[in-house]
Design a binder for these strands. Structure first.
Lengths: 223, 223
DNA sequence: GTGAGATTGTGAAAAACTTAACGACTTAGT
DNA sequence: ACTAAGTCGTTAAGTTTTTCACAATCTCAC
């Protein structure tokens, strides 16, 4: 299916969605061209890094001119598979889960949250942000072949148990917002986003790193 | 004030809060000792990396034995300034902001959200997760010398404007959850956490990277 | 057309980070 | 006391990522 160009560094891959969104903004503003320098100021990534990143996909720009916004955008749309929607499930309709559900993902995005799950009877059967909420007992049933990615916004004590069920149900990627580090088989990819850690890391940097001649850091970045 | 040991790599610094939390868990479980291998399995970081990380702070372990949990914990407590609480403000009491306010930060943490701000009259004067909500017009007044860090969970259109005000009010670190990339003076540190980007990056990795012989990746975070 | 100015794409160097490997030391069992 | 097994701390190697710096090329105003 996918021919592995396989050269793109992970650091680059992580920046692609960011580039994509800003290019989209520029396009909507009617901008026709953009230089790596301009883009650099907008996304806060060094311009040489941007050029290097783009160059992995070939020569997308023109010397002395910059990049054609529309062309670049359509190129990224293909590359990021923006045409093909990835279906997502969200587990745990608490505050964080609700925030996600209200996030307008379909705009500029190739992902759609198809179902949300919770244990709270009051929420089941309702819709949050246009997404139906089902009982978590129905997880296996509703996650068909379709859904390959899950967002985990449950209490951390429930994280590993749910993760096991998700994996068994066929999910191959999990975005884990709980502080628990979950264990999964090798073929499943987990990205951890730990709010408390992010805050503490920021505080640590403020206290221990020279404040003045310092660039910003992407969380994950992993950021 | 702070003697700059200044050798600790940023990648290491980002992992410290993670180590700290897991050590705390172990301690609460009554565990007396831990090896880099055990810890590795818990936090999903290579054991050599853990040993290397710890070694920046000196010889904390014993050969043939491992690390004494209590000692390590007390060491990290000092290093991460866990005794000295950093005061934080949160701007934007939406779903995401509310999630943060309910997060029990004080537990295992050196940060305390002192004030929250919003424009919604219904919320002002109430408490969310024990934190008083004030009107955003009072931001400058309430952020005294005290508060050095802000969490930004406002709509992205408001992000830059608020950021400017925060900087003027003396904040030196901003944890930005909006998709907007904000511009700040050099002496202010911003960490971006972009939920949509995280999700898209995960999807991209799933589609383009060999699924089987692959390690997990920490977001951020930078990222 | 021409030339000054802009900007890319990339080779090469540097920096940052991770991992392997192992000597040295510790523990614990006998 | 001796030994086998375990584990650290670190040197060195490997990998990944960023950055510099500049030739090549293009644009645009005149």
């Amino acid at each position: 299916m996918h021919i592995e160009q396989q050269k793109i560094p992970q650091a680059t891959a992580k920046r692609l969605p960011l580039y994509y969104r800003f290019l989209n903004n520029l396009y909507n503003q009617g901008k026709m061209r953009v230089s790596s320098k301009e883009l650099s100021e907008a996304v806060k990534v060094d311009s040489a890094t941007i050029r290097r990143d783009f160059s992995y996909f070939g020569a997308l720009g023109k010397k002395g001119y910059g990049y054609n916004v529309e062309y670049l955008l359509s190129f990224f749309r293909k590359t990021l598979d923006q045409d093909e929607t990835t279906k997502v499930a969200l587990i745990g309709v608490g505050n964080l889960g609700t925030a996600f559900l209200h996030y307008n993902f379909m705009k500029n995005n190739n992902t759609k949250i198809q179902f949300a799950f919770d244990t709270n009877e009051g929420k089941i059967g309702t819709e949050v942000g246009g997404v139906p909420v089902a009982h978590i007992d129905d997880l296996e049933e509703k996650i068909g072949e379709d859904i390959s990615v899950a967002i985990l916004t449950v209490p951390s004590s429930a994280a590993q148990g749910i993760a096991d069920r998700l994996v068994k149900a066929g999910v191959s990627g999990i975005l884990n917002f709980t502080p628990a580090r979950i264990t999964v088989p090798d073929h499943v990819r987990v990205h951890h986003i730990d709010l408390a850690v992010e805050l503490q890391a920021l505080v640590y940097f403020l206290k221990h790193y020279p404040l003045d001649v310092e660039e910003n850091i992407e969380s994950d970045e992993e950021d």
